[in-house]
Simulated scan of single mutants.
Amino acid sequence: MREQFSEGLKLALKARDARRTSTLRMINSAINDKDIAARGENRGPATNEEILVLLQKMVKQREESFAIYVEAGRTDLATVEKEEIDILNEFLPKGLSEAEVDAAIAAAIAATGAEGPKDMGKVIGQLKADYPGRIDFGKASGKVKAALIGG
């Protein structure tokens, strides 16, 4: 993933795309911060999974800011946030559709042998391992709970 960001930054600089350049620099900076924190804990550099979580967090922060700016009538700032969201999303894996999420939940329940709500953690763990960054776990946890209660 790091190579994608570096290559994207080079292209943005050549194209003189200020928004893209600043967004990619922000991503690289956040990754470097993550690496420094990991070094302090005697771990290696951030893994692709950790970078993926970092990107998802950045998108979520921008979505919240976007909503606030739109509500406040600040279309200039909302536009900036939306552009950054679009750039960040280019590097995230494509999310699963509702039907695919339902199928993934059913497969994870079968794979873990989950039988009730007490096994919810096992199912979520399986989903996180199988579909990193492709499922909104805030929404999926409700579906998992419903499937475990219903099943």
Rank of each mutant, 00 (worst) to 15 (best):
M1G: 05
R2S: 04
K10S: 11
L11F: 07
A12L: 02
L13I: 12
L13T: 10
L13E: 14
K14M: 11
K14D: 14
K14V: 13
K14L: 14
R16I: 03
R16K: 14
R16Q: 15
A18S: 12
T21S: 14
L24D: 01
L24K: 03
R25Q: 14
S29R: 11
A30G: 04
I31S: 08
N32T: 11
D35E: 13
D35V: 04
I36P: 00
A37P: 02
A37S: 15
R39F: 13
R39N: 12
E41W: 08
R43Y: 08
G44E: 05
E49Y: 08
I51E: 02
V53I: 10
L55C: 06
K57T: 14
V59N: 06
V59T: 13
K60I: 11
R62N: 15
E63M: 15
E64S: 15
E64G: 15
F66T: 12
A67Q: 13
I68C: 11
I68R: 15
Y69K: 15
V70Q: 12
E71W: 05
A72W: 09
A72Y: 12
R74L: 14
D76M: 08
L77R: 15
T79P: 06
V80W: 04
E83D: 11
E83F: 01
I85R: 07
D86E: 14
D86W: 01
I87E: 07
I87C: 05
L88F: 08
L88N: 02
F91P: 04
L92G: 06
K94E: 15
L96A: 06
L96W: 03
L96H: 00
S97C: 07
E100C: 04
D102N: 10
A103C: 01
A104Q: 02
A104G: 04
I105H: 04
A106V: 05
A108V: 06
A108E: 01
I109G: 00
A110Q: 12
A110T: 10
A110M: 03
T112E: 08
T112W: 06
A114V: 02
K118M: 10
D119C: 00
K122H: 10
V123D: 00
I124W: 01
I124D: 05
L127S: 00
L127R: 00
K128D: 04
K128L: 04
A129D: 10
Y131I: 02
G133K: 01
K139E: 14
A140T: 03
L148D: 03
G150D: 13
G150L: 15
G151I: 13
